[in-house]
């Protein structure tokens, strides 16, 4: 975090040369045929999910979410999935795309191999409700258990609590979490043991444990020192790869472990 805004706000030129291609992104947008295999599950009639295939014409700037919408709006309105902001900040549309957890709205089709069918399934490890929708309640229950709020002692200051830019930077990475569950539902430990807190809950504990304003670190470390806590992590890095916000999830888990160990001695 730079501290001196003046340094970079010198008056820019009134006129500059604009590059020929006008900042990229321009030009003809190619269109192509895509085949999607989507895991369908209608709770009122199916006992198991099954795949259905859809063929759609898409464009180079389209994302997987655009394809899901096209299928829902033009082919089969019963296809069910969650989505809201459509640009990677609300965390509604984490799904498995070709076996990897991604946000549908942040995955561009041009970055996938569109010569092969694109496989879309619900995220794993949480109860399947319908098509691409899972029950998020167990996920949020783990989140709530790590006390995801600032805990302070002593009298409230009248103005803001002071915090140095360095102390603020210490936990910056884990403040980015959008609770999409892409990490937790990519974790092999979580798949086999639903009691495990999972990466997202630990990330949110980290966000407070390393906040210099917070006094509740010991409480959270006690929770995470539990047999379903940080020690269950097998550092497969699935979570770090899955995080659409680029959070170093495995590192955060490691730092929480170190905090527990340092406290013990």
């Amino acid at each position: 975090m730079t501290a001196n805004p003046e340094a970079t706000t010198a008056e820019p030129a009134s006129k500059v040369a604009i590059p020929e291609h006008l900042g990229g992104g321009a030009g003809d947008i190619p269109s192509f045929e895509c085949t999607f295999q989507i895991a369908r599950f209608l709770p009122e009639q199916d006992s198991e999910p099954h795949f259905e295939e859809y063929k759609v014409t898409m464009y180079g700037t389209d994302r997987v979410l655009d394809a899901l919408h096209k299928i829902k709006w033009e082919i089969d309105g019963s296809l069910s999935f969650r989505r809201s902001c459509a640009h990677g900040v609300c965390g509604s549309d984490a799904v498995r795309i070709n076996g990897r957890n991604r946000l549908a709205c942040k995955t561009l089709l041009k970055d996938l191999d569109t010569d092969k069918p694109i496989v879309v399934e619900a995220i794993k490890g949480l109860p399947l409700e319908k098509d691409l929708i899972v029950d998020m309640e167990p996920f949020f229950q783990s989140y709530r258990e790590i006390m995801p709020f600032l805990i302070t002692s002593g009298p409230e200051p009248t103005r803001e609590r002071l915090q140095s830019a360095e102390d603020r930077e210490r936990f910056d990475d884990t403040t980015k979490c959008i609770l999409c569950a892409a990490c937790t539902s990519s974790c092999p430990v979580f798949w086999t043991d639903g009691q495990y807190f999972g990466p997202a809950a630990i990330v949110n504990a980290h966000r407070f444990i390393f906040d210099s304003r917070d006094d509740g670190g010991d409480l959270r470390l006690d929770v995470l020192n539990d047999k379903e806590g940080v020690w269950r992590c097998r550092t497969t890095f699935n979570c770090t790869e899955a995080c659409p916000r680029g959070i170093q999830v495995t590192q955060a888990i490691t730092e929480v472990r170190q905090a527990i160990l340092q406290r013990a001695f």
Partner: peptide, 18 residues
């Protein structure tokens, strides 16, 4: 703004920590 800071909101800070 001060309420949010006291609730824990991680604002960017000045060199003085404000």
């Amino acid at each position: 703004v001060l309420d949010l800071e006291k609730m824990g909101l991680p604002f960017n800070r000045t060199p003085e920590g404000k």
